[in-house]
Design a protein around this nucleic acid. Structure first.
Lengths: 124, 124
DNA sequence: CAGAATCCGGCTTGATACTG
DNA sequence: CAGTATCAAGCCGGATTCTG
């Protein structure tokens, strides 16, 4: 069967648990924001700069969802101009190792995937 | 800085690599299909049964994309009624550990996330 | 059994403009 | 600076029907 015995536990509910979390962190930006915040406490504009391509709107929404889910903490300072800092909560930090595992796999296999894609397109 | 030194490598391109792979495996069903196929070689109808909630259409499309990307192999037998089996390629199998890491995190923290969500909704 | 084809509603996302 | 508000587009995904 599986080469990883605890798989059955994860599939025990027919994938509902993994689907529930996938629905939360597997949108377009969330996981990338979490990995970026592993660099430490960052301001809104810092995040915006470090994540190329994300819109203000999406950064706002994603951060709000992450805060609601308890993965990110938001700290607003009563200053002018306003300053808001975001940081990973302990639970958010616990997501870093699996997230990096996936990211590591990504960097290792992206070329092979692209090659497979190209070969597939060639055959058409 | 980061507690995981190789993070900088992953973020080196501004997250473009991780985004490229996220775009591929982080749709609604792909990762779940991969994890399910870790059980071994499965027929189309088997997959359909083992993944509750997925439509025929989405299973077909996801499998086609996985095959194109070189993560899944498809074997059709010339029989009536037709039989088609799907299995992970070596690259597909290499995705299992990171995928399970994420799935494991999911099962461990889903309750805490739900609690945080509930508390958040309460405050509103 | 294992799909392919079609239709279509809705959610996600992006662009833009505005504000405390 | 750190958002909010509004709008429109596009893609995702579900339901259904049909086929070799």
């Amino acid at each position: 069967m599986s080469q990883y015995e605890h798989t059955c536990m994860i599939r025990g509910d027919g994938g509902r648990t993994i689907r529930a979390v996938l629905d939360r962190i597997c949108d377009k930006w969330t996981l990338l924001i979490v990995v970026t915040l592993d660099q430490g406490r960052l301001r809104f504009s810092d995040l915006h700069r470090r994540i190329p391509g994300i819109s203000q709107r999406m950064l706002t929404l994603s951060l709000k969802n992450l805060e609601r889910d308890g993965l990110v903490s938001r700290t607003a300072y009563a200053e002018v101009p306003p300053r808001v800092e975001y940081a990973l909560t302990p639970m958010g930090q616990s997501l870093i190792p699996p997230a990096l595992a996936l990211a590591g796999w990504a960097t290792e296999h992206i070329a092979e995937i692209e090659a497979s894609r190209a070969a597939y397109a060639e055959r058409m």
